[in-house]
């Protein structure tokens, strides 16, 4: 190598070194996309027809109709907010002990596996599917939505909080332990201060997610503004739909603003 010939060519080294694997993957991707492409049956005439309606929908945004169905809209939004508040609070309260149990550096193995199991189940199914089951069991109304979102809040907060607890600074934890503190004191002095900012950040983020989700639960009868939205689309009342969507976006924006404010204060 040291006696370099005057003309050495150079090529960028490929991302995947194994030639067989590289071309195999490439072939797989190409075949997949061709197969996927041909399994689409698009009714272009229907799409073309729809363009008018699409345009109407966009126009509706410049002239949203808050008035005609204001009663339905306000009731729906209000219910969404209520579901968001209750499910987030209950979800977080239940998530904290589960997170402690799901942190491998705190909990004994059986507790750890049990709590991780709860988290896995809570995260695996989409909220809408859970909501369908809850509506079947508890009947129509916001209670089903509340239970659904509290359940998925547990999965979300407990998983991320447990990961954060597992990543805490060991010296601090050891220092507190070496003072002869009890287990609860240790949690209170060594763990809690380290994970608190993260917990607050996650909780606020979850408020945001829960509100967005609560706006669709109505589609399956679990309360919130989703039902109104669904009706509006079914009747092609795009101006009402636009009004609802604008309200959702506005509330999400406010939540995002508040959350960045609080997060900046916490850190």
């Amino acid at each position: 190598m040291s006696t370099a010939s005057p003309s050495r060519t150079w090529k960028r080294p490929p991302l995947i070194k194994d030639t067989k694997l590289r071309y195999g993957l490439l072939l797989f991707v190409i075949v997949y996309f061709i197969a996927a492409f041909f399994s689409y049956e698009v009714n272009w005439a229907r799409v073309y027809e729809g363009l008018d309606r699409g345009w109407e929908f966009i126009k509706a945004f410049s002239n949203p109709d808050f008035v005609t169905r204001w009663k339905d809209i306000s009731a729906g939004i209000w219910e969404s907010i209520v579901i968001t508040v209750t499910s987030t609070v209950v979800g977080i309260i239940l998530a904290i002990p589960i997170a402690l149990g799901a942190a491998s550096n705190l909990a004994p193995k059986p507790v750890y596996l049990f709590c991780r199991g709860i988290i896995a189940v809570a995260r695996a199914l989409h909220e809408i599917i859970v909501a369908i089951l809850m509506v079947a069991i508890f009947g129509f109304g916001p209670l089903a939505g509340f239970i659904t979102l509290a359940f998925s809040t547990i999965g979300f907060i407990a998983k991320l909080l447990a990961e954060d607890i597992e990543n805490i600074s060991k010296p601090q934890a050891e220092a507190v332990k070496s003072t002869g503190s009890g287990w609860w004191q240790w949690i209170n002095y060594a763990i809690q201060p380290q994970v608190m900012p993260r917990l607050i950040g996650l909780s606020i983020y979850r408020v945001d997610i829960n509100f967005r989700s609560s706006s669709i639960l109505g589609l399956v009868g679990a309360g919130g503004v989703g039902a109104t939205l669904n009706t509006a689309f079914d009747r092609y009342e795009f101006d009402t739909a636009a009004a609802i969507i604008i309200m959702i976006i506005a509330i999400v924006l406010v939540l995002e603003y508040v959350s960045s404010f609080i997060r900046a204060k916490v850190q």
Binding site: N43, R46, V47, G50, L51, R53, G54, F57, L219, L229, N230, F233, D234, Y236, A241
Partner: peptide
């Protein structure tokens, strides 16, 4: 929901 109502 929106796209189904627009393009089917």
């Amino acid at each position: 929901l929106l796209l189904v109502s627009i393009i089917g």
